[in-house]
Simulated scan of single mutants.
Amino acid sequence: MVVLGGHRGGDELGLPAGPVRRDDQAAGDRVGDRRAVVEAARDISSPDTPAPTAVDERGRSAQTFLVDVVLRSGGEERRAMASGQDIYAVTAPLAVEAVDRVLTGRTRTAGVASAGAIFDAPDFLRALSPHISTEL
């Protein structure tokens, strides 16, 4: 998970003065460069940046995404990856799947909890398989 440090020393976007670092590794491990993060944020927020163009019959853009999660506990490590085309096109099916599971009682806990605690994560990801590719 990439985290942005406190707001001390950042520019108008509130980003840290140093590199972006992983919160689960030694402080010396460099994940990204502050300038790249700032440039990406400016590009996304600029009114001059055009909206993505649909490239297929489903209205998805050509943009792709990859979410790569590594969990470490003691000497054990687990990794999960999800990827696909046009992450915004995945948002609605993801939200609908979550609401459907809540309304039909397919949850593992009640109250305020993370998605991983509420849902069976592998089953949830399988339900999204028409929209994303996963590697567990």
Rank of each mutant, 00 (worst) to 15 (best):
D11N: 15
L13R: 01
P16M: 03
G18D: 14
V20D: 00
R21T: 05
D24N: 12
A26V: 10
G28S: 13
R30S: 09
D33K: 12
D33Y: 15
D33P: 12
A36W: 10
V38M: 06
E39I: 09
A40P: 04
D43Q: 09
S45H: 14
S45R: 15
S45Y: 14
P47M: 04
P50W: 03
T53C: 05
T53P: 02
A54L: 01
A54S: 05
A54Y: 01
D56Q: 01
D56E: 03
D56W: 00
G59C: 06
G59E: 05
R60S: 05
T64D: 08
T64V: 09
L66F: 06
L66S: 08
V69W: 08
R72C: 13
S73D: 14
G74H: 06
G75W: 01
G75E: 06
R79L: 03
R79M: 00
A80V: 11
A80K: 06
M81D: 09
A82I: 04
A82W: 01
G84R: 01
V90I: 08
T91W: 09
T91Y: 10
A92W: 10
P93L: 01
P93E: 01
A95W: 00
V96L: 11
R101H: 03
V102N: 07
G105Q: 04
G105M: 05
T107C: 09
G111E: 07
